[in-house]
């Protein structure tokens, strides 16, 4: 066809409906991620602890299996709030590892290659872009944090019967709330660092640093000023405090109150949103 015959033609294919456009980015991201065998292996590894937990729950309700293994119910871990708290703690720690692997390149690649205008020139807002990028992490991390946590809760409810579920519904709430709070903050931190730090390793290091460095600072402030306020810098302590309150764990030394813990999460989230809003633009003026 001669060049002069080329003229503008609108796209005639099927349009992605407006409400589901934010799922396009995660879809392509997962296609990329699951190409790597090592990533798949790591993802499968994340189901080892939930599998062990499933076996423990099953053993609690199977007299034959107990007899074969020559153990009693008292020899196995009790199925209570602590059981589910440990599950959530292990799985959210793995979620952190995944965030360090995936998170640092989420936004930085688009910024480094000037790809943002290509996204934002479409009927796709900045908000949708950020939510889409967050969903890359949130959906993936949910698959091995609160989803198996709740499945295990329902499995235990089914096997136990007799109103166990109604009596312990707050555990399900705790599994969901603690996991989601942690995942959202991880996703926001990863994206904020990704947007501001172009070097992937430095962004990963910043993610580690934000969890490691506030710990000694918090304890030194506690020792010097006899206050727990120093721990308000520490997301790990906020996670423990939130878990301690929601899972009703008296043995867990919560350095912060329930509302202080939420305050820490909210403060970090606001800072991350501010950092993202400063960097995610369709264009950039270079002076």
């Amino acid at each position: 066809m001669a060049v002069y015959e080329h003229s503008y033609k609108p796209y005639e294919g099927t349009l992605t409906s407006a409400w589901s456009r934010f799922l396009v980015i995660p879809r392509y991201a997962y296609q990329d991620l699951f190409k790597y065998k090592l990533f798949i292996a790591l993802f499968v590894l994340c189901y080892v602890y939930p599998l062990i937990s499933t076996v423990i729950i099953y053993l609690h309700h199977n007299a034959n299996a107990l007899a074969v293994l020559d153990i009693t119910v008292s020899d196995i871990l009790p199925i209570n709030a602590t059981f589910f708290y440990v599950l959530v703690s292990v799985q959210t720690s793995l979620a952190f590892v995944f965030t360090v692997i995936i998170g640092p390149v989420l936004v930085s690649r688009d910024l480094a290659n000037n790809a943002l205008p290509l996204y934002l020139c479409r009927p796709f807002s900045r908000f949708e872009y950020i939510v889409s990028k967050m969903l890359v992490l949130l959906i993936l991390l949910s698959m091995f944090t609160w989803v198996p946590g709740l499945l295990l809760f329902f499995f235990q409810s089914y096997l136990e019967g007799g109103g166990w579920m109604a009596d312990n519904l707050w555990i399900a709430g705790a599994i969901f709330t603690v996991s989601i709070a942690w995942l959202v903050i991880l996703a926001l931190l990863a994206m904020a660092f990704s947007a501001w730090i172009k070097w992937r390793t430095a962004a990963s290091a910043a993610l580690f640093a934000i969890f490691i460095i506030p710990t000694p600072i918090g304890f030194i402030i506690e020792e010097l000023f006899n206050t727990n306020m120093g721990h308000m810098l520490n997301l790990g302590v906020a996670f423990s405090a939130l878990s301690s309150h929601l899972f009703q764990l008296d043995w867990l030394d919560a350095k912060l109150s329930f509302f202080e813990a939420w305050g820490v999460f909210a403060a970090y989230a606001l800072i991350c949103v501010f950092m993202l809003s400063r960097r995610v633009h369709a264009y950039e003026v270079v002076s």
Partner: peptide
């Protein structure tokens, strides 16, 4: 107390991560 601050905060945290 200062000895603890020095070792816990300055040496093991600030100098370590700063040098890193």
């Amino acid at each position: 107390a200062f000895g603890n601050i020095y070792e816990g905060l300055i040496l093991r945290t600030m100098v370590f991560f700063g040098c890193a």
